[in-house]
Simulated assay, not measured.
Amino acid sequence: MSDTDQKMIEALMAKNRELQEENDRLKRQVGNGSTPSGTPAQPSGPKATILTTSDGSGRLSSLISDSVTANLTDEDGEPVKGERIVFMINNKAAGTAITDANGDAVLHTKQYAGDPQAWVQALGGGYTAEYKGSKNYKPSKAYGGAGVSV
């Protein structure tokens, strides 16, 4: 092997080490939530949400003076706290509640009993819980059924 060939091999090996070090540095940055430029990585957009409701059932008098519940989680199943849930009967808002640390929004129907006819309709046709979404989370909707005995 000539001296020229040996120098070429050494230069290529040095360049390879240089590139490997740069690659390792970039991997560390990305692993720390940073982009290659060193700025914080931006989220890919709002997360999907899943809204579920509890079906109400029981005596008419207790349903009108009790509560309905909706639970909001993100796409990873983590509770979403501090978001407003709108409870609707026949496409008309019946009340709102804010999600707690568990993602639960509880609407105490007694405080909205001013229109008992609306809750009677809900017993027959159910209710809808709706999350309108935010900067961080996508909207979602769920249906809650109700069964009643008198």
Rank of each mutant, 00 (worst) to 15 (best):
S37D: 15
V150L: 13
S149F: 15
M88F: 05
L107R: 01
T39Y: 09
L72H: 13
R28F: 10
S2L: 09
A142D: 04
K7Y: 07
K47S: 00
G82K: 05
E21M: 02
T109W: 12
I50A: 08
A48D: 14
K138L: 07
M13N: 14
V30C: 01
S37Q: 10
G38E: 11
R84K: 14
I98A: 03
K27M: 03
D74C: 08
N71K: 15
L72M: 10
I89C: 06
V86W: 00
D24K: 06
Y143V: 04
V68C: 09
E78K: 12
Y112F: 13
T109L: 13
A97E: 09
Q111K: 07
S134P: 02
T35F: 09
F87D: 03
S62D: 15
G145E: 01
G147A: 11
I64L: 15
N32I: 01
R59H: 05
S65D: 14
P43Q: 05
E78M: 07
S44Q: 14
T73Y: 09
S149K: 15
L12Y: 06
T4R: 13
V80P: 06
R25W: 10
P139G: 11
K92M: 06
S140W: 05
D104E: 12
K15D: 06
G56N: 15
S67T: 08
T52W: 06
G126N: 02
D115P: 07
W119N: 02
R59I: 03
P116F: 03
Y127L: 02
A146K: 13
G58D: 01
V120G: 04
T128G: 01
S2Q: 09
T53E: 03
E75V: 12
S62V: 11
G103C: 08
R17G: 01
A129D: 03
D115Q: 13
T109K: 11
W119Y: 05
R28C: 05
S62N: 15
G103Y: 10
A11Y: 04
L19F: 10
S57L: 05
N16T: 05
S65P: 10
G114R: 11
D3N: 09
E130T: 02
G56I: 07
N23Y: 12
S140V: 04
I50T: 12
G147S: 14
S34E: 14
P43A: 04
A122G: 13
Q6V: 05
G38C: 09
S67C: 04
P116A: 02
D66P: 01
S140C: 02
P116N: 05
L12F: 03
I98C: 01
Q111L: 02
R17K: 10
H108T: 04
Y112T: 09
G33P: 10
D104G: 00
D74N: 15
T96M: 00
V30S: 01
